[in-house]
């Protein structure tokens, strides 16, 4: 999992979790793999990422060196800056570890670079139960006009 992906992942699929963002990273193995550098792409991707989340994620795995905490548009002409963003966003990879939901503490394992965001059968059953209870509630009470 690269940090670009982390920047877009949430645990809001868990019942009771509202935003589930950002997920905390615990890494036991980090790899760096070379990816072709495309400055235009980096310039275009910067406005699409949550920079604060990106910076904190990079910092939490020890890769924030030289990465400014806030980003200014004048940096877009700075090749060293773009290269640094490229490296941390696309080349640094969490190979083994886990992600933690900021609200529930639920952990999602990362193995061979692939985060497992699937819910367990119990979590799925609970979600379905909650949905049926909710539907039933609305079926029973919603048609009734409110009387005081």
């Amino acid at each position: 999992m690269k940090l670009i992906t982390h920047n877009m992942l949430t645990s809001k699929c868990l019942k009771g979790v509202v935003t589930g963002y950002p997920l905390a990273i615990s890494a036991t193995n980090i790899k760096v793999t070379e990816v072709d550098f495309n400055p235009d792409f980096i310039v275009r991707i910067i406005p699409k990422i949550d920079w604060e989340v990106f910076w904190k994620a990079a910092d939490s795995i020890g890769h924030s060196d030289g990465l400014p905490q806030t980003v200014e548009s004048k940096l877009h002409d700075n090749n060293d800056f773009l290269k640094k963003v490229h490296r941390v966003l696309l080349e640094v990879e969490i190979d083994e570890g886990h992600l933690t939901c900021p609200e529930s503490g639920r952990q999602f394992p990362i193995t061979k670079g692939i985060p497992n965001m699937l819910l367990t059968e119990a979590e799925n059953k609970f979600a379905m139960l909650l949905k049926s209870a909710n539907d039933l509630y609305h079926e029973v009470f919603a048609p009734m006009p409110r009387q005081i």
Binding site: T5, T10, K12, P115, M117, L118
Partner: peptide
């Protein structure tokens, strides 16, 4: 990402 559709 090992995920159900796009839920995460």
């Amino acid at each position: 990402v090992n995920m159900n559709l796009v839920t995460c």
